[in-house]
Each structure stands twice: as structure tokens, then as C-alpha cells.
């Protein structure tokens, strides 16, 4: 059920637990009352999500440019400034290059979701199974080593090496992201 604003009958969009003198109070506010109480809300244009606005807000909220931040996609030449201007990515690799900036953007655009659920391409499904298996075997290997079960560890290592490395899973540049969430 939708929770209403503490101050009117509009649906609440800001929810917060405030602890005052050791007692927790729940606060639920509609957009108008949230602004009136000093909450900073993202600007919206009707029902549609403005990616350019979210991107600009996301970059402003990021810590000052660390040296290693890549600002241009090596595959298509897309820059952050361009991305913010057009609101579109330039190629599949942009999702890796700008991943840090994008993950918050994606969550906001997609109602908090950040992980795909649903159909996979047949080839990618195989890759995902393989990546998941590799992660599981690696975890078991670590456990086997720490509990000094060396024979089991050797078997696990053999199985792991038979699966190849993450780089072998290349189905084009888009699928190089090795670890699954």
C-alpha cells in the first residue's frame, strides 16, 4: 500500500528514519513537503526520466576527479560531457568505461534495479553459467586451502583451469566484465 505524506494526503516519495534522543521516528513526505523540509530532490520532467539531468547530478555528486577516471570511451570516443549533453551512450563499451558514473544513474532510472533478470542470449547464458561456476569453484578452492584439504584443492584447481580464464569468455567487447554480482 502506498504510504501517504505525514502532512497531506499525497503519496510520500521521501522516507527516512530519524533518531532523536535515542528514539527512532519514521518520516514520510511528499515531494512538496520534502522540499519544504529542506530535502534536495532530483528535478523531474513529467513521468519520464531525464537521463541528462540524472547524469549531471550524478557527476556533481561524485568526489573530485580521481586521476584514474577515464573520461573518453576508447572504442567510440564518447566523452562524459557528450554523454551528459545527449543522454545516450555511444557503444556497448561505454557501459564499462562509465560504469562508475552510470550505476547510480541506472538505479535511479530503473526504480532502484541494477541487475538484469530475464532472458539472456543463448551464448551469453553459457557464459554466465561458466562465470558463476568459476566463482563458485574459486570460493571452494579458497575454503579448501584454508582448511588444508590439499587433495580437494588440487582437484578444484584442475577444474578451474579447465574452464579457462575470464578473458576466454570474450563474446565481443561487451562481455568482458568478469564477475557476476
Amino acid at each position: 500500500m502506498t504510504r501517504l505524506c505525514d502532512h497531506c494526503d499525497q503519496p510520500a516519495t521521501v522516507h527516512e528514519t530519524v533518531i532523536k534522543t535515542g528514539v527512532a521516528h519514521e518520516v514520510h513526505l511528499c515531494a512538496d513537503h520534502a522540499r519544504a523540509h529542506g530535502y534536495v530532490l532530483p528535478a523531474t520532467t513529467g513521468a519520464a526520466v531525464s537521463i541528462t539531468q540524472i547524469l549531471q547530478a550524478a557527476q556533481q555528486s561524485q568526489p573530485r576527479a580521481p586521476e584514474r577516471t577515464i573520461r573518453t570511451c576508447p572504442s567510440c570516443g564518447m566523452t562524459i560531457a557528450n554523454l551528459q549533453a545527449v543522454g545516450l551512450l555511444g557503444c556497448p563499451d561505454c557501459y564499462k568505461v562509465f560504469e562508475e558514473l552510470l550505476s547510480g544513474v541506472i538505479q535511479r532510472a530503473q526504480d532502484g534495479a541494477s541487475i538484469h533478470v530475464g532472458r539472456h542470449p543463448a551464448q551469453a547464458a553459457t557464459l554466465i553459467d561458466r562465470a558463476a561456476l568459476r566463482n563458485r569453484l574459486a570460493k571452494e578452492l579458497r575454503e579448501a586451502v584454508s582448511s588444508e584439504e590439499y587433495e580437494r584443492a588440487a582437484r578444484l584447481r584442475d577444474r578451474l583451469s579447465s574452464l579457462g580464464t575470464a578473458g576466454d569468455d570474450d563474446l565481443g567487447a561487451t562481455l568482458n566484465t568478469p564477475a557476476l554480482p
Binding site: 545516450l88 551512450l89 555511444g90 530503473q110 538484469h116 532472458r119 562465470a131 566484465t177
Partner: peptide, 29 residues
Amino acid sequence: LDRSLERSLEFAFHPRFGYLTACPTNLGT
């Protein structure tokens, strides 16, 4: 239709973000 197309075309896909699209609002499915 998607399955048919997939027999001859390889679609951009990311294990975490799903099918990749130019705008992040269309990602996933």
C-alpha cells in the same frame, strides 16, 4: 521474433545490465 533474430545476429549483452541500449532507460529486457 527475438529468438529468430538471435540465430543470425549477436546482440550486445552485459551480464549485469542485460541487453545494452543507447539510453539506460531501455536496459535489461
